[in-house]
């Protein structure tokens, strides 16, 4: 997960900002409760987005909590949690653990292996509880590693594998919305993967790291903006099909503006828009 699916703070009302922060804090607390304090380090904005989306779709009962928080020891905090938050917390650990194992395989840094140890038992529990998601994740992560070794230069292949992972994670349960959520997750996953490739292109060319755009033109001058917008076009199309009424302003803020924060900061550091980011 790459942390591109974030809010654009300057365009959100106070109320929506609080709601988003409470969702983020709720996810952080769910991580602690389910997989131990260390798992809070795996917290991502991408899974906060998923929490908000699935909660708005399924309207599971929310528990509002006020209390102290180890991350903000001098401030009274409030947050909300639901069944969805628990699901997103488990998916966070599933992805986070795979990421650590992937890093360990890449650079054989024993610190990464050591860091993964406290999560092993939780990873096993989650794998048993969510076989559909974890099977796809393990399979596609293995294929992604193989692709990096092969230096595969077909962007659709690599992005498609990451899209598959997100597609499964977006499907909270089998029902009338399964198909739409899967397609939305797949297109957002493809977008995240390609956004990461675009933003890191220059750096990867220097370091020799894998990047599926290496043989293509530079990322300057908006060259890649049209396919990033194409991928997001699919995402918002499927989002619009979902009967979601709550928190639409926050979700639209993320999909229409927040997702570009890193891109704007990188390629248009002087423009107004780049200051809006998280």
């Amino acid at each position: 997960m790459f942390g591109y699916v974030i809010i654009n703070q300057s365009d959100l009302s106070e109320e929506d900002l609080l709601r988003y922060r409470q969702c983020y804090c709720g996810l952080c607390h769910s991580l602690k409760e389910r997989s131990g304090n260390m798992s809070r380090l795996m917290l991502t904005f991408d899974l906060t987005f998923l929490t908000l989306l699935l909660q708005a779709l399924y309207e599971k009962e929310e528990r509002e909590v006020n209390g102290p928080c180890i991350i903000h020891p001098f401030k009274q905090q409030s947050w909300w949690q639901s069944e969805i938050t628990s699901y997103a917390a488990d998916m966070t650990v599933l992805l986070g653990y795979q990421k650590l194992m992937d890093d360990w395989n890449d650079d054989c840094n024993p610190l990464k292996l050591w860091a993964s140890l406290p999560f092993k038992q939780h990873y096993r529990r989650i794998m048993q509880q969510y076989p559909r998601q974890s099977e796809v994740l393990e399979d596609r992560m293995a294929k992604l590693s193989f692709m990096e070794i092969q230096d595969e230069q077909d962007p659709d292949k690599a992005a498609g594998l990451f899209g598959d992972i997100m597609a499964e994670i977006f499907v909270y349960r089998e029902d009338h919305w399964t198909d739409t959520l899967r397609k939305m997750g797949a297109s957002l996953g493809r977008f995240i993967y390609m956004m990461d490739a675009v933003v890191d292109l220059e750096k990867d060319r220097k370091t020799g790291n894998y990047n599926p755009l290496k043989d293509l033109p530079d990322a300057k001058d908006n060259h890649y903006r049209d396919f990033l917008e194409m991928l997001l076009g699919e995402t918002v199309y499927y989002f619009d099909k979902l009967p979601i009424v709550d928190d639409v302003q926050i979700i639209k803020n993320i999909l229409c503006s927040g997702v570009w924060s890193e891109y704007m900061r990188k390629f248009y550091p002087d423009s107004k828009e780049s200051e809006k980011g998280e």
Binding site: F227, E229, M230, G233, V236, Y237, S257
Partner: peptide, 13 residues
């Protein structure tokens, strides 16, 4: 034609 989805995104945003 292939830009259709991108055009949709622009109008959506």
């Amino acid at each position: 034609m292939l830009q259709q989805n991108g055009v949709y995104y622009q109008s959506y945003t």
